[in-house]
Amino acid sequence: MTAFQDFASIWLSILFEAIPFVLLGALVGGFMEAMMPGDLLRRWTPRNPLAAAALGAGAGVLMPICECGVIPVVRRLVRKGVPPHAAVAYMLAAPIVNPIVAISTFVAFRAASPWAVTGLRVGLGFAIAITAAMLVRALAGPSPMLAFSEETSETPRLPFRKAVPAALRHAGRDFIEITAILAAGAAIAAALNAWAPREAVRGFAGHPVAATLAMMALAVALNLCSEADAFVAWGMGDFSIASRLGFLVLGPMLDLKLLAMYTRVFRARTIAILVSSVLLLVFVAVLAVGWLWPALRAVGNPLMP
């Protein structure tokens, strides 16, 4: 009973925290569907794939939505003609490059190289999002990437008084669908969070490769909000800054609840490519940061040697 209470409390807390953001994402998506002309985003998106992916990742700064809310927005973006790889770049980058996450990371690491950690988190998030998006585009080939039709949604222009209820109805449908999937993903996450001995990972802290893998596994298992995860990472002082960066960069891009929610946007093959690309890129980037850390710290942290 106690074990179930721990699980259920964590499960509910993840949902309480995520529901407002899922709804926000669903509302943004709903208004996008009801009010945005069908070809507008397609016309705005650069034809060059790399430029499109970079624009997608950069849009995370202007349209900051956390990882729970980003899925309904991405669904509507691709329906409105945004190329899937640009949407992937936005989906991966938005929860990391947004100003709120940058500030919380800076505050959390204020006592330990805040400029370097924040800069590396945002920079790696941006670079990995673009690279992963390009890899998905290259490896997925001509096969369909999306879990639904790739035909662009050409919603007829509605007068404002009709567009608002229509947007709310789109949001309502998306909210129910995404929340159902979120609840399933969060249940698995809560079980791991409640029952897996977290202390066990501390045993890997001494070895760079094992520490990086342990922190990446922890990021996937714990399903923390990107606004709060920096404070948890700060507390793991046994681990090097580089391995903690693995936790900070990977968590907002890939965790169990996100993995479940990805199924509402992408086909299984696309998800497999996406997940492997992100894991590999984060692992390599973190090992490189660990190797270069003394130099990076000196450059990125001039005020706090």
Binding site: T2, A3, Q5, D6, A8, S9, I10, W11, L12, S13, L15, I176, E177, T179, A180, I181, A183, A184, A194, W195, A196, P197, R198, E199
Partner: peptide, 28 residues
């Protein structure tokens, strides 16, 4: 999907306020 979104509500009504046990402290 609609049934699935109602499950957390039912669990919370049954569980009450919830919280972490001493056992969870040891696990964490």
């Amino acid at each position: 999907f609609q049934c699935a979104v109602l499950i957390p509500i039912c669990v919370s009504l049954w569980l009450g306020r919830g919280g972490l046990s001493t056992q969870a402290m040891t696990t964490r």
